[in-house]
């Protein structure tokens, strides 16, 4: 681990000024990605600007039925908040299914959205990796790719987006609010996470030094009946092989509104719009759910090692939707822990 200098920011504008004026400065929130990757020498900032004292940790319901969350609210605090649990179960469940209780006490909302991929070639700081060192190639393409993506991939990178939170936010049409040297911005969550294309090192549209200040989740009709279903190699403390964030309203036996997003299978938190389009107006039954899942996964491009994810994703989509319609209970250990 290289040496660093440390600056504890006392005001938001000062923090933005400090980082945007210095390409070698990084923000430090919970540190669960930043310190980890500093130690691996995957990230090599000269200076860390600690933002933990900034007043960005509020969590509040809006009068319209939505939600505003500060960028420094911790995963554990957001998951436990009564308004979150009541209005957006999918969000609370996504948060509680991630990492561990200790990590969730440390990890912030902003940091979670900007966590880096778990691809072992990216993390080893040595292997050719287009994301870490543009132009060096992608070691995963011909290497070990069991955990990698089957949707949204390119010939330059197939790493899976690791965040559970982001999957729920994309399903809920949330916005990411930022403050940069050129003022405030709000990005739709679905546009915040970039496909790798030929520039996998660019993961989001922010400029250097732009600070995430908060997340806004609009009121959504189906959100109160929503869930996060995460399938993984062990029952807890593990990233997703496949996860599904789903929200559903059914009127007279057919789908009135549905939100569906996938984790663990794509290079971004994947809004399953094709499946949604198929489902709206369709009968809310297992056949339609299966067809929708098939439609969504039709363009999947698996490697020989992760081909299992295509069928696993279809089944997980169907199970999530059937659970929401009362068709079948989620197995304990794969849905919410509580």
């Amino acid at each position: 681990m290289r040496t660093i200098t440390y600056l504890r920011a006392t005001d938001t504008a000062g923090a933005v000024e400090a980082v945007s004026s210095d390409p070698t400065s990084d923000y430090l929130a919970g540190g669960t990605t930043e310190v980890d990757l500093l130690r691996q020498e995957v990230l090599n900032p000269r200076r860390l600007v600690d933002i933990n004292d900034l007043p960005l940790n509020g969590i509040e319901g809006t009068p319209e039925g939505g939600l505003r969350i500060g960028a420094l609210a911790r995963m554990s605090e957001v998951a436990a908040h009564p308004v979150v649990r009541e209005r957006f179960p999918v969000l609370a469940q996504a948060l509680e299914s991630g990492a561990s209780p200790q990590l969730r006490n440390m990890a912030s909302m902003g940091g979670n959205l900007l966590q880096r991929v778990r691809c072992s070639y990216f993390r080893d700081a040595e292997s050719p990796c287009n994301k870490r060192e543009p132009g060096t190639g992608c070691s995963a393409l011909a290497g070990f790719s069991r955990g990698h993506a089957v949707l949204g991939t390119s010939e330059h990178c197939i790493a899976t987006h690791p965040s559970d939170l982001a999957v729920a936010l994309v399903a809920l049409d949330a916005h990411v609010r930022t403050l940069g040297p050129r003022g405030e911005r709000a990005y739709p969550a679905d546009e915040f996470f970039l496909l790798p294309g030929d520039s996998p090192h660019r993961e989001h549209p922010m400029e250097h030094g732009e600070l995430i200040t908060g997340i806004e989740v609009p009121a959504t009709d189906p959100a109160r009946r929503s869930l996060y279903l995460k399938v993984r190699d062990r029952a807890s403390y593990e990233f997703a092989l496949v996860s599904v964030a789903a929200a559903l309203s059914v009127v007279d036996g057919s789908v009135a509104d549905v939100r569906l997003a996938l984790g663990g299978v794509a290079t971004t938190p994947w809004r399953a719009r094709r499946a949604e389009d198929f489902l709206v107006g369709a009968a809310a039954d297992a056949d339609a759910f299966g067809m929708a899942a098939r439609v969504e996964m039709a363009d999947a491009q698996p490697t020989p090692m992760n081909a299992f994810k295509v069928e696993l994703a279809r089944r997980t989509i169907v199970r999530a939707l059937r659970t929401l319609t009362g068709g079948r209970e989620a197995d304990p250990g794969t849905g919410s822990p509580t």
Partner: peptide
Amino acid sequence: WVDGRRALACLTLAVT
């Protein structure tokens, strides 16, 4: 524990 909440000391910088 940091302020009474469980946390991982390996991913926490002492200076923070």
